[in-house]
Computed example of a mutant assay.
Amino acid sequence: MEQSSKWKKIVLIAGLVVIAILAGIFYYRYEFVFGDGTKAGTMNYFVHKGYMFKTYEGRLIQSGIRRPVQGSIQSNEFMFSVTDAHVADILNKNAGAYLELHYKEYLHTLPWRGVSVFVVDSVMAIKPVSPTQP
């Protein structure tokens, strides 16, 4: 009888250790904020879409990006997701404006967080773009 309870204790402790390790791996891969920063540019695409999880997805066109090495290709598009409905409403109302966005970068995506590892959490500045007159 004593041998059986000893094995149960060992199995319980091993199970708890495995669960703690898996929880740590999940947190690191999906919830750990790898970095954060700001991007500025003109938003030309913002949509609320998805089959099962409806997410907000957008694209910011950055101006003034130059290639550091001749012949290399560098994208001037910043693809992002938005999880906060209030931030999404602000972005929807300011399509085409020059925006400064604060984002968090995750290591991997989650279906309910969007398709991008860059998640915009706030709008720092909005500047209307005035058309130039010839």
Score class of each variant (00 low, 15 high):
1 M>Y: 06
2 E>H: 04
2 E>D: 08
4 S>G: 00
6 K>G: 03
10 I>S: 12
11 V>F: 13
11 V>R: 13
11 V>C: 05
12 L>V: 13
12 L>M: 12
13 I>T: 04
15 G>M: 00
16 L>T: 04
18 V>E: 06
19 I>A: 13
21 I>R: 04
21 I>D: 02
22 L>M: 09
25 I>L: 13
25 I>P: 09
27 Y>E: 04
27 Y>S: 01
29 R>G: 01
29 R>D: 01
29 R>N: 03
30 Y>F: 12
30 Y>C: 06
32 F>V: 00
33 V>P: 06
34 F>G: 01
36 D>T: 06
36 D>V: 00
39 K>W: 07
40 A>G: 08
42 T>F: 05
43 M>W: 11
45 Y>F: 10
45 Y>K: 08
50 G>F: 05
50 G>V: 03
51 Y>Q: 13
52 M>T: 10
53 F>V: 01
57 E>D: 06
57 E>V: 01
57 E>T: 05
58 G>D: 07
58 G>T: 03
59 R>H: 02
60 L>G: 08
60 L>M: 08
60 L>A: 04
61 I>C: 05
62 Q>T: 07
63 S>I: 05
68 P>S: 08
70 Q>E: 13
72 S>I: 00
72 S>M: 10
74 Q>A: 01
75 S>A: 11
75 S>E: 14
77 E>S: 07
78 F>E: 14
78 F>W: 13
80 F>R: 14
80 F>C: 04
81 S>T: 00
83 T>E: 15
84 D>P: 10
85 A>P: 13
85 A>T: 04
86 H>Y: 07
86 H>G: 07
87 V>C: 09
87 V>W: 14
87 V>A: 15
88 A>C: 02
89 D>C: 03
91 L>G: 02
91 L>F: 11
93 K>Q: 11
94 N>P: 06
96 G>V: 00
97 A>M: 03
99 L>I: 00
101 L>Y: 14
101 L>G: 03
101 L>R: 13
101 L>E: 04
102 H>C: 00
102 H>V: 00
105 E>C: 03
105 E>Q: 12
107 L>M: 05
107 L>F: 15
108 H>P: 02
110 L>V: 02
110 L>F: 07
111 P>A: 02
112 W>H: 04
116 S>T: 05
117 V>E: 12
117 V>A: 09
119 V>L: 11
119 V>C: 04
120 V>C: 09
120 V>I: 11
120 V>E: 15
120 V>D: 09
123 V>K: 11
124 M>I: 13
124 M>R: 06
125 A>Q: 14
125 A>K: 15
126 I>M: 09
127 K>A: 00
128 P>E: 10
129 V>I: 14
130 S>D: 06
133 Q>V: 12
134 P>K: 11
